[in-house]
Amino acid sequence: MPISIDAFDDQPTDVLDLQAGTQPARILEFLAENPDHAFTQTEIHEATGIARGSVGAVLSRLEDRGLVRHRGRYWAVAEDDRLASYAAQTQASSESVTDDYYGDD
């Protein structure tokens, strides 16, 4: 569904806009949950279930946006303020899914 150009122009540029469940979101979520580690593409594939052939392309697009970084074979989440809020948001979202709203009854 298209949006008006005014709505487009009014959107903040510093907000990280990733569709939940997409390959970029899944990879970024995995890396953001493990900020103290760097992973190979194979390890990212195994952790996320994303096809091996897609992982490299997704990582390259994320790197172009400054969201991940790499050295040699290893990839890690970038140091970006947007990622801290993204990680907090995904953590809060996953906690709400596992909350026990009905108690032990």
Results as ranks from 00 to 15, higher is better:
47 A>K: 01
74 Y>G: 03
61 R>K: 13
82 R>T: 01
66 G>C: 09
90 T>F: 10
25 A>K: 02
47 A>D: 00
73 R>G: 02
44 I>M: 01
8 F>C: 08
37 H>I: 12
35 P>T: 14
28 L>H: 04
9 D>N: 15
102 Y>D: 14
33 E>N: 15
59 L>M: 13
42 T>L: 03
92 A>I: 05
14 D>T: 08
80 D>E: 09
47 A>T: 00
19 Q>M: 06
57 A>L: 08
91 Q>L: 12
100 D>K: 14
13 T>W: 07
67 L>K: 04
62 L>K: 04
63 E>K: 15
51 A>N: 05
92 A>V: 05
103 G>Y: 07
97 V>A: 11
89 Q>W: 10
34 N>W: 07
10 D>S: 13
101 Y>R: 13
82 R>Y: 01
27 I>Q: 02
60 S>A: 13
83 L>M: 05
94 S>H: 09
68 V>F: 08
100 D>M: 15
94 S>F: 06
65 R>F: 13
6 D>V: 13
99 D>R: 15
64 D>I: 13
78 A>G: 06
66 G>T: 07
28 L>T: 07
95 E>I: 11
34 N>Q: 13
17 D>A: 12
105 D>Y: 05
12 P>D: 04
45 H>G: 03
69 R>P: 09
1 M>F: 15
43 E>D: 03
86 Y>E: 04
23 Q>H: 12
105 D>P: 05
15 V>P: 02
